[in-house]
Design a binder for these strands. Structure first.
Lengths: 337, 337
DNA sequence: TTGTATGCGTTATCAC
DNA sequence: GTGATAACGCATACAA
């Protein structure tokens, strides 16, 4: 197979202990032997074996990250950030696509345990009791991304959904709109669903605007199709809306598409603000004004939190990342009445 | 730390050999001991240690995949497929973002070697001599995705770029267009650049249409921005084009955006066909007609190829995946003159 | 400054 | 059917 320190030792005429020492740069050897060893390593093309190292150190230099769906722009951006942070610390990242499926998630956790990964990142999903117990038994640090747990003491990094939704809605109001609708995600989603609805309502209330149920459409999810069908339904209920807050960029894009079919001009006839600031927001026609979540940075921050937990063994504070509205061209300023 | 088979053995009053046997379901033990062992495993919450197993088997049940950029819809889709196939075989996948950077790529390969991954997937990038030597020394199967190597005998899975570009262009011709332009990627890219240009030209030639240099814009890449600026440049050179083949969906979306700014209606004034069929194609306004690559399936197929190489140790045939045009609304049928 | 020996958790080869 | 025990490749405590 491949060479071991034993081979290197023989080749360099030293003991394996010495080889191990120079390999880890621990000092305690002469320059001469160091050179000898390095030479032998090079000549043989020796490659350290992470299995053997891991067996001793009980560390894998690998972290695991679980997504409900890896192939979304949302996930990709986070993954990009995580990967970057991990790479800086010579760590690898294993991706897991849970498909929001309990059994599948548990299987991943099992695999990750056996591989003795150093930490876990959990994205966008609720932590069930089953997950938590498993995680706890793994004795490994965990950080939540874009979700949080009310029942279990797990650190997280996310934006304040309610606040961000408030900001989005308030932006619409500031631009002169008073008849504002919303297409929300699933309202049973206590992280990304209800809080954004609450933020929306609170912004209206604070400005003294009426909150009407027929101005809100509750979708099943946050997808393009949800937005597409959502807009039709919304406009049937409330034809006179002048502005719309979509709880995700995908929803917003779907709404824009539906508007296009319906002959409704954006932003002339209807202003739309999204949520997320995915790459697609910029590509939309018109370019989508939206509330940005710093996804890539969230990935970096979460990974860094994980590493400090791993390496320094200390607890870490959750982080609320700041959001901001990115003004593009889907919202029109309107004269206040 | 965590329990070992030794603990389990003691707990069940058997030897570690027996524990190992039932753990691997090898038979050669009585039902009674089997139950005893299973019970002990459960009671202790024993977790096998992949390090120890790997040390013996020299297998990690992990594969590595290298992308120039993980956070693109293109990469995500492939990753999704790979992940799916790997999961079915209880394998994990480590993602690496090379940023098309030689040194970074080499470092990843180094990490993957040390971790004794079972196979490598290489996406969208040229294999340099340096990479190939490293890969060869790793003694591990490799499959290329959406790229191929003319110098090294590495199996790949991709679509036929030239053919697909031909198909796209020919579709435009069949729809009645004769003044057709192209925004290509980098023409120095011998995989996704030049071949698509060749396919474009060949389709025109076959139909007896003139091939004019000013009808082709060579971008630096395949991005939205390249398409955005590309369309302006193209139209300056050739104002009377009625149709456009964009060598990627991102290019196409950029072109659509530019057209929107320019007051050019798609498809009334200009028909556009893209390449890739990413999710964004469907979200475009108008929805983009495009040549589809089955990205997710390519990921699955490539991973499966890798696994048969790994497990059966035999060589494997490269796969040309079939493409198809997805008709949406960005191409208008025109009367033949 | 260097070498010897032990153990990390498993699997596998022997014996019994 | 079952149990010792020797690897696997490395790090490290202890000797020298």
């Amino acid at each position: 197979m491949s060479y071991t320190i034993k081979d290197v030792a023989k080749h360099a005429n030293v003991s394996i202990a010495t080889v191990s020492r120079v390999l880890n740069g621990q000092g305690g050897y002469s320059k001469a032997t160091e050179d000898k060893v390095h030479l032998a390593i090079k000549e043989l093309g020796y490659q350290p074996n992470a299995f053997a190292r891991g067996l001793i150190s009980n560390k894998s230099n690998t972290i695991g990250i679980l997504f409900p769906e890896v192939s979304s722009q949302f996930s990709s951006k986070i993954l990009r950030g995580v990967e970057e942070a991990a790479h800086r610390l010579d760590s690898s990242v294993i991706v897991c696509n849970t498909a929001s499926h309990g059994q599948r998630t548990m299987k991943y956790l099992q695999l990750l345990t056996e591989k003795r990964i150093d930490g876990i990142l959990f994205v966008s999903e609720m932590i069930t009791e089953e997950y938590y117990k498993k995680i706890e038994s793994m004795q490994v640090p965990v950080v939540l991304i874009s979700t949080e747990s009310y029942q279990y003491p797990l650190p997280y990094v996310k934006v304040d959904d309610k606040h961000a939704a408030f900001t989005a809605t308030d932006y619409l109001v500031k631009m002169g709109h008073s008849k504002i609708g919303m297409i929300s995600g699933n309202k049973d989603d206590i992280i990304a669903g209800q809080p954004r609805i609450d933020g929306f309502k609170q912004a209206l209330a604070q400005r003294g605007l009426a909150i009407k149920d027929e101005n809100i459409i509750h979708s099943n999810g946050f997808s393009f199709n949800d937005g597409f069908t959502g807009l039709r339904r919304l406009l049937e209920q409330s034809p006179d809306l002048t502005a719309l807050f979509a709880a995700s960029d995908a929803l917003a894009l779907g709404a824009i598409s539906a508007a296009y079919k319906l002959g409704i001009k954006i932003p002339e006839n209807l202003s739309i603000i999204g949520y997320d600031n995915l790459p697609i927001a910029e590509m939309a026609i018109p370019p989508l004004t939206t509330v940005a979540q710093p996804l890539e940075e969230m990935g970096i921050v979460a990974a860094e939190m994980l590493f400090t937990m791993m390496n320094q063994g200390r607890r870490v504070e959750s982080r609320i990342m700041s959001h901001s509205v990115i003004e593009r061209e889907s919202v029109k300023k309107v004269n206040l009445t």
